[in-house]
Nucleic acid binder design. Sequence first.
DNA 1: GTTGACCCTTACGATGCGTCATAGTTTACA
DNA 2: TGTAAACTATGACGCATCGTAAGGGTCAAC
Lengths: 247, 247
Amino acid sequence: MEGKGMTVHEVSKRTGVSIRTLQYYDRIGLLPPAAHTEAGYRLYDEAALERLQQILLFRELEFPLREIRAIISRPDFDREKALAQQIELLTLRRDRLNGLIRLAEELKETGGRKLDFKAFDTEKMDDYARRAKAQWGETEAYREYEQRSRNWTGEDTRSIAGEIMEIFREFGEMKDQAPDSPRALAQVRKLQDYISARMYTCTDEILASLGEAYGSGGEFTKNIDAAGGPGAGAFAAAAIRAYCRKD
Amino acid sequence: MEGKGMTVHEVSKRTGVSIRTLQYYDRIGLLPPAAHTEAGYRLYDEAALERLQQILLFRELEFPLREIRAIISRPDFDREKALAQQIELLTLRRDRLNGLIRLAEELKETGGRKLDFKAFDTEKMDDYARRAKAQWGETEAYREYEQRSRNWTGEDTRSIAGEIMEIFREFGEMKDQAPDSPRALAQVRKLQDYISARMYTCTDEILASLGEAYGSGGEFTKNIDAAGGPGAGAFAAAAIRAYCRKD
DNA sequence: GTTGACCCTTACGATGCGTCATAGTTTACA
DNA sequence: TGTAAACTATGACGCATCGTAAGGGTCAAC
């Protein structure tokens, strides 16, 4: 049953997230299912569960869902950095709770005549959260992306993801040619144009750093290889390097 | 400035609660100000701040505001019991956060290949919260009260509180007479009828236990004495005892 | 082929405020 | 004494995040 993907019901049982929530997360493009049956049933795979886990961590910290979507969908999402920040934020929260517990205990003992509102304060948390968000959104391109993606539906994100995967599939098809062959360079330009058209203005500089990520052997490489076959990520990276060097 | 009551702005600065929130809490009858200026400005006193503190503790635990209102407005609200439960709930929350922190750390170290949704689970918390709420709402009269008060506005609660205080004021006026004098007994009946009409069906049994609370020297006594003069609470308690014994 | 357990979409509702808009009030100071 | 600045009020609208119900397909089993 896991080989073919889990239905909403199964995901709900495994994760505790309600079916309605899964449907909603699909609609807003936060967690699109891996596939659909012919009848339109949503089917989720393990990767979706990982993504859901990430989402839940952000949600725990009361990030708006749209921001979560923007953060974890960005082309250079750094999971480890995000986790480090989440740990920090969760810890601040725990400490604040400890303060509240202490306050409640004092109130209980003294009969409640004490007034203290500092314990409720969320300044430190908010501060850190603001700084963290600032880090994620520090580039101009990303702010542009956030703006543009504000009103996207699940359909939008899904179609964009599909188009990009298609581009990578095409990279895979030409991976026996030279990375600086005209066809490969044209394909790089196609990628750049598509990103600029649908996501954010993709300068050569940004393109170069995307290329880095694609060839680094991490998740990006994995995903691209899944679409274009083994080596597609490395090939795309090489083509992008060539494109940025000479064109 | 505290002698005459604080404005929304001052309360907001002292507590961190926004002005808009204070206005809203007034509108829904959760935190009515102690007084108003002629121009209609809200004026809060220290007692209101204590109530606000209580409210914030409940809110921290994500109790719906209407429930908070129902709980802390009920005629036999036990602050100490509430605090004990809040401590317990806050502790459960803290422990859950610790679990999430541990999960995030593992994810960070292992590269995120682990799937664990038990850490997000809120079952224990919800369980305890449900039991706690059950305790607060365990009597038939209270459930009725909750039902009836669902759609009250701030105006409703304020007018009811005012009417009841008026009744206690009248108790205070007759406190040099015997507690079983016809006037006093009639006044008790007036109280019982008013509560039955506007809050919940006030049986003799409930009335008797309310009388206990009024004469116990606690907050109720204090509040009643504030309306009817020193000794008004004790007098009302005695009258209620007389009424329940013979009528 | 019917039952029962699933699934879909659409639409409406509720909570807890933020955010104007519009207008009256109070305070400080020139 | 006037007036600007800072405060207050109410009311309307908006918003995120789902719950809930309505109305209706899908699928496995018996």
